[in-house]
Simulated scan of single mutants.
Amino acid sequence: MIELKQLTKKYGTKKKSTTALSEIDLQVGKGEIFGVIGHSGAGKSTLIRCINLLERPTSGEVWVNGVNLTALGKGDLQKHRRKIGMIFQHFNLLSSATVYDNIAFPLTLTNTPKADIKKKVSDLLALVGLEDHKNKYPAQLSGGQKQRVGIARALASDPDVLLCDEATSALDPQTTDSILRLLLDINKKFNLTIMLITHEMHVIQSVCDRVAVIHAGGIVEEGPVTEVFLKPKHQVTREFINRETTGADALKLALSTTNSESSKQVKITFLGAQTYDSLLSQIVRETGVNFAILQGTISTIKDMPYGQLLVSFEGEASNINRTITLLKERNLDVEVMN
């Protein structure tokens, strides 16, 4: 659905330029929710604006739904842009227009008949839960309601792709969760491809199927969210994940004080139904190894439950090794920390 080929964006002149994006290759499948996470200045906003050519790449190609947008003339590009919806961090609503007129705005630009506009806007108001607010102005709405208007407006032209530029970063946590649930609902109802950028790992963890981590204008890590979140390879990815977890200093202290010849510290990752099984207790009863939990988490990645335990096994080395082997045989991911 979206394919970026060697995408590069530079600002400035040939003599003095700044590279915002460097030779990025990326693919997003039909119906997928794809996240791009990065720190401020990493290039993520430039990346998403290059997809609909609000920013024209210096080199490389942008393909959307089988069409090379970078090869189109102005008229054809405008036509294909209508199939790419976009929602913004600060909503970008027309302050002097009602909710109804804000949502209708893209349709009025294409001379859509009034009866069709009325039907479409009514359907979208129901979808985003704003039927009772259609005659209000943006100043009368909360932040979450404004973003719902922005989402409805982005959907007015029946896009194939929805781009979300930091769509929840101006919202409080509870409102953020409600907007993320709405995006999930839209994705499921319409099989709509959604690409979102964010600096919040919680957003990625809640709704995305796959994620790319951007740093200094390049993609440093990419893959399924479960894989990237649970087995981060790049330091930048680890920083984002560590911000979402607690007790990092206490964990370092625990690891430093539990190290001995008769103990071994191990991180065990549970995924899916195994998260709620008693596999660990079953296996240590069989091997006779004692254990202490140093840190533990149970949560979800999108709809997938997962758990991570950092444990200290104590006992004879052979029994500890057998415990680790049995855990691996149960298809658990086991990482020895020392």
Rank of each mutant, 00 (worst) to 15 (best):
E3A: 06
L4T: 05
K5W: 04
G12D: 12
G12M: 12
T13E: 13
K14M: 14
S17C: 12
A20M: 09
E23P: 11
E23N: 15
V36S: 02
K44A: 03
S45I: 07
C50P: 07
N52D: 13
N52M: 12
N52F: 10
G60I: 07
E61M: 07
E61Y: 07
W63D: 03
L72H: 08
G73P: 03
Q78V: 06
K83C: 10
K83G: 14
K83E: 12
G85W: 01
Q89L: 13
L94S: 13
S95M: 10
D101R: 15
N111V: 06
N111C: 11
L124F: 03
E131A: 12
K134W: 08
Y137Q: 10
G143Q: 11
Q145R: 11
G150S: 05
A156I: 02
L163S: 07
C164N: 02
N187W: 06
N191T: 13
N191W: 06
N191P: 07
M195P: 00
L196C: 07
Q205F: 00
A212W: 02
V228H: 01
F229N: 00
L230C: 02
E239H: 13
T245G: 11
T246K: 15
L255A: 05
T258I: 03
S263M: 09
Y276A: 01
L280H: 01
V289D: 04
A292Q: 14
D303Y: 00
Q308D: 02
L309D: 02
S312H: 04
S312D: 07
L332E: 02
E335V: 15
